[in-house]
Simulated scan of single mutants.
Amino acid sequence: MSDHDCSTVTYGYVDPNWPRPDTGDSACIIIYGYVPSLALGTLGVVLFGVALLAHLWLLIRRRTWYFSTVVVGLVMEIVGYAFRLLASQRNPYAVSYFVAQYFCIVVAPVFFSAAIYTIVSVMIGVVGRKYAPLSPRVILWVFIVCDVVATVVQITGAALVGRAYSDQKDPDTPNNVLLAGLAFQVFSFAVFVLCFCVLVYRARKAMGTDLQVFSAAVMVATVAVYLRTCFRLAETAEGLLEYLSTHEVFFGCLEFLPIVVAVYVLVWWHPARWVKKG
């Protein structure tokens, strides 16, 4: 028998075509607000899998070990979407599937952000420190630390949200913890984007054509990752089980798609192929 009595639950989404499994890991509602899509889960595993192979090949061939964080992030994306596949096919009520996919999909972009911080640090070394508002080391470590702190807070909040739903408790407090982590991440990343823009503007005449094109491409990847973070903030600020969080189309267009764009932009405009030409 399940550890929870769900007979009195009056809020949240329950799929009439998918009876809740009578297991201790099953929440009384589907925490996603919908049954995760088989198609989106499959696309996530396939597209991030292809990107992983491409980045691994470039990493080994070009020996750009400083860019290995992208590989770590892609592995986490694949695992995250694999858990969404499990939820869509086996048990969308499972708290463990929800927490695992949330953990992986939320943490993965931190590794892409770290790669972007590294790119900008390398660019400063190419064009000259005088054009940058901060030193390469400060840019690299300050923003990485900010991302780590923000992500730890988010994961803590997400885990508490999942447990609150499983135990039929009020999830508002853990959601506020999650919101605080996202707000801090949006702020810190905005500061980084500003630093990147200042560098590109000041160094525009010192850059060759290739480096200018590369900078524009990296900016596209940066904005894509930032868009995804802003979506997560808006979704959480609106509240649990509200419109943004309960319609998978928003997840697909504003979480999945921006990260796909970012990782594939960084395949073609890989720093090993462009930065040294600057």
Rank of each mutant, 00 (worst) to 15 (best):
V145G: 07
L140A: 08
G24M: 07
P16H: 10
F111D: 07
A100W: 01
T69K: 05
G49V: 00
Q154V: 05
T222D: 04
Y165T: 06
R204V: 05
H270L: 06
R62C: 12
V122L: 12
A159G: 12
N176W: 11
T246R: 08
F48I: 00
L140E: 09
V191C: 12
T10R: 14
F67G: 04
V152Q: 05
N175F: 10
A272F: 04
A164M: 03
V142L: 15
V260Y: 08
T173Q: 09
R204M: 10
Q89S: 10
R63C: 08
F112A: 11
G33E: 02
Y66E: 09
W18Y: 12
C195P: 04
R62P: 04
V71C: 15
L47T: 06
L179S: 12
L56V: 14
Q89W: 01
T229F: 10
V261G: 04
T8D: 13
K277N: 07
E77M: 14
V50T: 02
V107S: 15
F196A: 13
Y226A: 15
V177F: 04
L233Q: 08
A108T: 03
A108Q: 04
L178R: 12
V218A: 14
L85W: 00
V122H: 13
S121F: 02
T246V: 01
L257R: 07
V267Y: 08
A132R: 00
M123W: 08
A158T: 08
V72L: 15
V110N: 12
V153G: 01
S135K: 09
C6L: 09
P109Y: 01
T64D: 13
P174N: 01
Y102G: 15
I30Y: 06
L38A: 09
F251C: 06
V70G: 13
F187L: 14
R163W: 11
A262F: 04
G162W: 00
G41C: 07
R129L: 07
L47H: 02
R163G: 13
V223N: 05
S113C: 13
W141Q: 11
Y243C: 05
V249T: 07
E235S: 08
G33T: 02
L38F: 06
V110Y: 10
V106I: 15
A114C: 07
C28D: 12
Y165L: 13
C6Y: 15
V9E: 12
V72E: 08
V107D: 10
F143I: 03
S37A: 01
S215A: 15
G208E: 07
V193F: 05
I78A: 02
F143K: 00
V193A: 10
F192A: 02
G162K: 00
Q89D: 07
R273K: 10
A272V: 05
K205L: 14
V79R: 01
M207R: 08
A82L: 14
V225G: 13
G239C: 13
A224C: 10
L199Q: 09
F112P: 06
F48V: 01
L182K: 10
M123I: 11
C253G: 10
V213W: 03
R137T: 09
G128H: 01
L257W: 11
V148E: 08
I29R: 03
S7K: 11
R137V: 06
V106A: 15
C6R: 07
G162R: 00
F143V: 04
A216E: 03
H4D: 14
G80D: 00
G33P: 02
A164D: 06
C197R: 11
R62V: 10
Y165I: 04
E238N: 08
A183F: 09
G162V: 00
I29K: 03
T8H: 12
A54L: 11
L182I: 12
